[in-house]
Computed example of a mutant assay.
Amino acid sequence: MSLRTCWLNGSFMAEEHAHVSIFDRGLLFGDGVYEVAAVFNGRLLDADRHLVRLARSQREIGIPAPYDGATLEAMMQEVATRNGITEGLVYLQVTRGAAERDFSFPAEVHPTAFAYARAKKLSDDPNASGVKVHPVPDIRWQRCDIKSTAMLAQVMAKQAARESGAFEAIMHENGLVTEGGSSNMWIVRDGVAYTRPTSSDILAGITRDVIFDVADEVGVKVVRRAFTLEQAYAADECLLTSATSFVLPVTQIGQHQVGGGAPGPITKRLRDGYLARAARLTA
């Protein structure tokens, strides 16, 4: 296996040379933020939107922006190109930086920024025939709108899903579905798609936002309204959206089959519309 080319603090290098300090606050406290952008037809997809969200996450926790969005977007494309990625993902992380271990912010510290890429099949996803999700309580903090690297709750949720034979977790709190372990959740009832409104309870997914536009294009009505697990069990369709999976049908929630166990027409329309848009933007 050939070594990947990574980017660290302004320089491209082989992954064997990409090292960060053991005193980096991203390692010690999870004090950092990140984004993952898809690569389609060899080109970044919606990286500009991801970088707007990254900048917001940095502002919300007080991490200075060491690079502007244009610089980061060009770098991410270069990481993908240097690694020969035609379909896959580019991961970008920014931490507060390395300093003596103390909970409060250090007076002077320079952020650590790095990125790498990996191949992943996105257009012909084998999961497009439907996936199972596993219900778990949502035990996260109250600022889920910040894309923090502190993701122990999501790690535990996704591990529980794996151990149950599921593709993803579906998290719930106070009787309402919040989101997936690393995705946004939707249901369809009587031809209308429902997803939870934007708030600090969920991460406002970039793919989710794109689907709002795609839904207009393909004639699907979307309502931003929270729903319960029971409503998800009884839905005509269920689906998840994320930058790493685009749009996937959910055909089973725990032991409950959804929509007869097959992808529904609205999910297919949204997935096809999303892929068509991706093809246009990266042609």
Rank of each mutant, 00 (worst) to 15 (best):
S129A: 11
G130K: 05
V131E: 05
K132M: 10
K132L: 07
P135H: 08
P135A: 05
P135I: 05
V136Y: 07
P137T: 14
D138S: 00
D138I: 00
I139Q: 13
I139N: 11
R143P: 08
C144Q: 15
C144T: 12
D145L: 09
I146A: 09
S148E: 13
S148W: 12
A150V: 15
A150H: 14
M151L: 12
M151H: 13
M151A: 13
M151W: 15
L152G: 12
A153S: 11
V155M: 00
V155G: 02
M156V: 08
M156H: 08
M156I: 05
M156G: 02
A157P: 01
A157V: 05
K158F: 01
A160E: 12
A160V: 09
A161W: 02
A161M: 08
A161L: 07
R162N: 10
E163A: 10
E163N: 14
E163W: 09
G165D: 10
G165Y: 05
G165L: 07
A166C: 00
A166E: 04
E168N: 06
A169I: 04
I170T: 04
M171Y: 00
M171G: 04
H172R: 02
H172A: 09
E173G: 14
E173N: 13
N174E: 11
G175S: 09
G175W: 10
L176P: 01
L176Y: 11
V177R: 00
V177N: 02
T178R: 11
T178K: 09
G180S: 00
G180D: 01
G181K: 01
G181H: 03
S182K: 07
M185Q: 13
M185E: 13
W186P: 06
W186M: 03
W186R: 03
I187S: 02
I187C: 03
I187N: 03
V188I: 10
V188R: 01
R189Q: 13
R189D: 11
D190W: 08
D190M: 08
G191Q: 06
G191D: 03
V192M: 10
V192P: 05
A193Y: 06
Y194Q: 02
Y194E: 05
Y194C: 00
T195L: 07
T195V: 10
R196G: 12
P197R: 12
P197Q: 14
P197C: 12
T198N: 15
S200K: 15
S200M: 14
I202C: 01
L203Y: 04
L203T: 01
A204C: 13
I206P: 01
R208G: 04
R208A: 04
V210S: 09
V210M: 04
V210R: 10
V210Q: 01
I211S: 10
F212G: 02
F212H: 09
F212T: 01
V214K: 08
A215V: 10
D216V: 11
D216Q: 15
V218I: 15
V218R: 12
V218K: 12
G219D: 07
V220T: 12
K221N: 14
K221G: 13
V222P: 06
V222S: 03
V222Y: 01
R225D: 13
A226M: 08
A226D: 14
A226N: 09
F227T: 00
F227I: 08
F227W: 05
T228K: 10
E230R: 09
Q231L: 00
Q231A: 08
A232I: 01
A234V: 08
A235P: 02
D236A: 04
